[in-house]
């Protein structure tokens, strides 16, 4: 038996909006640790990892590890029926081929049940070891989204370069070129407005902007984003979900032939 009650139901709505463009079908894994998901896009270029820790739920019951295959478009359709202030409870019985989403209005005067069919999904799980990154950039998530959107109107790929001077986003296309440099800026009124660069050594990698733009669908989840770069690894773009966990996106770089 599985029963997860999330008072801040809007978080779950935002999580679905953040991942449904990248991934069509995925297995949600439930264990004592929390509610998690790992899935790749259809071309295996990008991967999304979600964790909502059990402590972040008002009530969390998961009698045994459970993997529930869902079409994310369908989950999103269901969750869009929840009000933004609603409490969301996810329920499933052992061996059942359905999951139930229950939406309660804050003053309990409206309670809705949406039952959705589960599906069998053959998904591959990749082992992602902890890594030391050559550079980690933390910046306002809205700023990162703006940069990705602006550059994708000029080119298809972005070169992200981190040096002592700052982080540079560069692109080139038929109509011209663009460079955006963000310098470290810790002297701001609010910490979430800071750009902080932790650099062990300079690093420069090339990525497809299409995927980065898709990652920025997670912007409503967090005021800040961290971008971890190493020359021999996929970039990790992480949005922390307050007190609960994270959505992490991994994107393979372009590789020199």
């Amino acid at each position: 038996m599985l029963e997860l009650r999330l008072v801040q139901g809007s978080l779950l709505k935002k999580v679905l909006e953040a991942i449904k463009e990248l991934v069509t079908d995925a297995n949600f894994d439930c264990s004592a640790t929390g509610f998690s998901l790992q899935a790749m896009d259809s071309s295996h270029v990008a991967l999304v990892a979600l964790l909502l820790r059990s402590e972040g739920f008002e009530h969390y019951r998961c009698d045994r590890n459970l993997s529930m295959g869902m079409n994310l478009g369908n989950v999103s359709k269901m969750l869009r029926c929840a009000g933004s202030d609603d409490i969301i409870t996810i329920k499933a019985d052992d061996g059942s081929d359905t999951v139930t989403f229950m939406f309660e209005s804050p003053n309990q005067d409206k309670i809705a049940d949406f039952e959705m069919k589960l599906m069998d999904i053959d998904s591959e799980h990749l082992g992602i070891p902890d890594a030391e990154y050559q550079a980690i950039v933390r910046m306002p998530s809205g700023e990162f989204a703006r940069i990705c959107k602006d550059l994708s109107s000029i080119g298809d790929t972005v070169i992200i370069s981190v040096t002592k001077e700052g982080v540079k986003f560069s692109t080139a296309g038929d109509i011209g070129t663009a460079n955006i440099v963000c310098r470290q800026n810790k002297t701001v009124d609010k910490p979430e407005e800071a750009t902080v660069i932790e650099m062990q050594e300079p690093v420069s990698l090339t990525f497809a902007l299409r995927y980065l733009n898709s990652f920025t669908k997670a912007t409503p989840l967090s005021e800040t984003v961290s971008i971890s770069l190493s020359s021999d690894l996929p970039v990790v773009v992480e949005y922390k979900i307050a007190d609960m966990g994270y959505v992490r996106y991994y994107l393979a770089p372009k590789i020199e032939e």
């Binding site: 270029v45 991967l47 990749l126 082992g127 992602i128 996929p234 372009k254």
Partner: peptide, 14 residues
Amino acid sequence: DSIQGTMYNFYEKC
């Protein structure tokens, strides 16, 4: 010239 890498270039199935 560069080609697009995939997750399999970096991580192993488990």
